[in-house]
């Protein structure tokens, strides 16, 4: 039992790398996409991207990045890079949507007030709009991080040795599914509890900053 826990737990680092890498790309690209969506030509491209990513399964996106990369860019990606890129690209579309809903929930007057004060667009987004949006969308962002953590289990289809894959290996070797899957479930559940804990701390901090 302990050796099984240890063996499955060794996949924790890989799972966390996928999650953090994916969410980092997702947030950066998603923020960029949500701002580009307010432009005309770039807005159409950004909307097209979001629609395409949301309209196709993540397992397909992961397969394209991993199996087709050699024929497209001439390089065979390792499993971690392929995973981080696919999860990041996939997450970017959802982050862009979360940000869009956050931006649209702000009163139009906030943009107008910034314009009447002569605040340039860059500073308007950086100092006026995004700080308010981030506070509003934080709970949805925590949800996205949790969803992404669970989606990292798809890495097993290209052979990535994450928590899930390791539990399946143990199950196959020992002809016993219940315990390894319970161990994997416990690892994921603990991770989710930890993300929720940090999320709540940040949320309280943000409201404390505002109210202190």
């Amino acid at each position: 039992m302990i050796s099984n826990c240890y063996y499955i737990g060794k996949g924790l680092v890989f799972t966390l790398q996928l999650m953090f890498g994916g969410i980092a790309i997702g947030v950066i690209l998603g923020t960029l996409l949500s701002i580009l969506r307010y432009g005309r030509v770039l807005g159409m491209l950004a909307n097209g991207w979001v629609s395409l990513i949301r309209g196709t399964p993540l397992i397909l996106q992961l397969s394209i990045v991993y199996f087709m990369a050699p024929s497209i860019i001439g390089v065979r990606l390792d499993m971690l890079s392929a995973g981080v890129i696919s999860f990041g690209l996939n997450s970017s579309a959802y982050v862009a949507e979360i940000l869009r809903s956050g931006v649209e929930s702000l009163p139009k007057g906030q943009f107008e007030a910034a314009r009447t004060l002569g605040i340039p667009d860059f500073y308007m987004w950086k100092d006026i709009i995004l700080p308010q949006v981030i506070r509003n969308i934080w709970p949805a962002m925590v949800n996205e991080i949790i969803a992404l953590l669970k989606e990292t289990t798809l890495i097993s289809i290209i052979g990535g040795m994450d928590i899930m894959r390791r539990s399946q290996i143990i199950a196959a070797e020992q002809f016993e599914y219940f315990m390894p899957l319970c161990i994997a479930g416990a690892y994921y559940y603990c991770l989710v509890l930890f993300i929720e804990f940090i999320g709540r701390k940040v949320e309280r901090r943000m409201s404390h900053d505002k109210n202190s």
């Binding site: 007057g109 906030q110 107008e112 007030a113 009447t116 006026i128 308010q132 506070r135």
Partner: peptide, 12 residues
């Protein structure tokens, strides 16, 4: 200079 009906102060 413009004063809005609902002020539109930046809440943060």
């Amino acid at each position: 200079g413009f004063m809005f009906q609902d002020f539109q102060l930046f809440p943060h």
